[in-house]
Design a protein around this nucleic acid. Structure first.
Lengths: 253, 253
DNA sequence: ACCCATTTGTCCGTATGTATA
DNA sequence: ATATACATACGGACAAATGGG
């Protein structure tokens, strides 16, 4: 096993981030973002890319197809492919190809948890009694879900959303909603398979983290709230990177 | 002319909207949007689509690839392709009316600085020498701008952007860019009017803050970097709320 | 107007790997 | 463990659009 010999010797290729297509997408996207290929410039022809990366045309075309779908390039029949990427500052959007590798997902998760850390601090200073009550409800729902072995994600997310809301700053909740909808749908994987007892342990730990966060916010201790959230973060990303493809843990930060 | 006989008789095909791929994308997208294929349903297998539209597998795969990129379907390895149709949560956007009151602007600024606080912590752990050099350049440009009484905003923003870049996580820089373009244009107010000597003092203080942040990042001290950024934030928001409409200070966090 | 080279678009066929039931 | 269906990759062929000679 683990040989994968191509018919016509492609020299070396040490890494395989997740297939040849992704390799080319990453490379070209980087070139565009870093300005090596400026907006309006013509990309190399498909044949050139083929020989440069030593891949077949199928791969090149799939890569260009993804870049098109993500609005980075536009291709004109008989002419070539051109970079677009007008610094679209009019809205913050995370393109679909940012979920292709595990590293991408972790990067996104890191952003989300950084936000949550600060949100926890602000929430500790400003939370209302109504916020506390909502958090407690979500916390209860979460622990019930653990016991009944049912879906824990919704109540988990509800807790995190309530922390964001408790900042009193609508933008925190808005951004969290956005990041949540971007991340959660990609985590269809397992959640119930591949380690029933490990999962239970993980969820209980997450619940413990949540309670610490809740207590700190209730006590209006901003530093403790941030620290608790950060602790939760550290565990989560450690687990995520360790188990490679087991992404289920990610959205249970 | 106008014969185009394919090897194995394809019956009719009157229009070609812009390629076979687009034809299939349109057809499937319509099916999903009109509810012929409901969310969660399995789409026909690739082979079925091939024979139904009389196209090759290549075309089918490219069509499905575009539907994936547009978030309309999700395909699970070894199982099939499934309709999603959770339309639109597709981007995070701050609407223009969020700048109507001072409170709105402060809320936005708070989001930005929360982000920067965490970014500073990550930057301290990951900064490269190139990052440090770029920060130093921006710092120098900022102090020059203070002395010459010229526009200090660009170099200030450059410094903050470089901190975001030093996280090594592209999404931090992206979000900062977005928030920057949203906030800066709204701060046309004064910057040179309404308190020439107070402004100088303020800018010098900001420069001092920046240097503290820089030193902490250079020393790879994450806690100190966050603390320095937070100190900067506290001064900034105190000034901003005190002087009511004098918003100029805000973007010099 | 014609042809030609270039480049993208479409198609075919095949082979191997991998995930699911 | 086998069968199914998708994932990835290769290669060759021709069609169609474009722009220049």
């Amino acid at each position: 096993m683990e040989s994968w010999k191509p018919p016509s010797a492609p020299a070396v290729r040490q890494r395989r981030p997740r297939g040849l297509v992704q390799e080319i997408v990453n490379s070209l996207a980087a070139s565009i973002r870093e300005g090596v290929i400026k907006p309006g410039d013509k990309l190399p022809t498909e044949s050139e890319i083929m020989s440069r990366f030593e891949v077949s045309r199928t791969v090149v075309r799939e890569a260009l197809s993804k870049l098109q779908a993500n609005g980075l390039v536009e291709t004109r029949h008989g002419i070539g492919t051109f970079a677009l990427n007008l610094p679209d500052t009019s809205n913050f959007k995370i393109s679909g190809c940012d979920f292709s590798t595990l590293a991408d997902v972790i990067a996104l998760l890191e952003l989300r948890i950084s936000l949550e850390t600060e949100a926890a601090g602000l929430a500790a200073q400003r939370r209302t009694d109504a916020n506390l009550a909502a958090m407690e409800t979500a916390l209860k729902a979460f622990s019930d879900a653990i016991e009944q072995d049912s879906e824990a994600v919704p109540s988990d997310f509800a807790f995190h959303m309530e922390v964001s809301r408790a900042t009193g700053n609508r933008h925190f909740a808005d951004l969290m909603t956005y990041l949540g909808t971007m991340i959660i749908p990609r985590t269809r994987i397992d959640t119930s398979s591949s380690a029933p007892e490990g999962r239970l342990k993980y969820l209980q730990q997450a619940h413990g983290d949540h309670e610490n966060i809740f207590i700190a916010i209730r006590n209006q201790d901003a530093d403790a709230a941030r620290a608790a959230m950060r602790t939760s973060r550290r565990r989560s990303s450690r687990d995520t990177s360790r188990n490679g493809g087991l992404i289920s843990s990610m959205y249970l930060s």
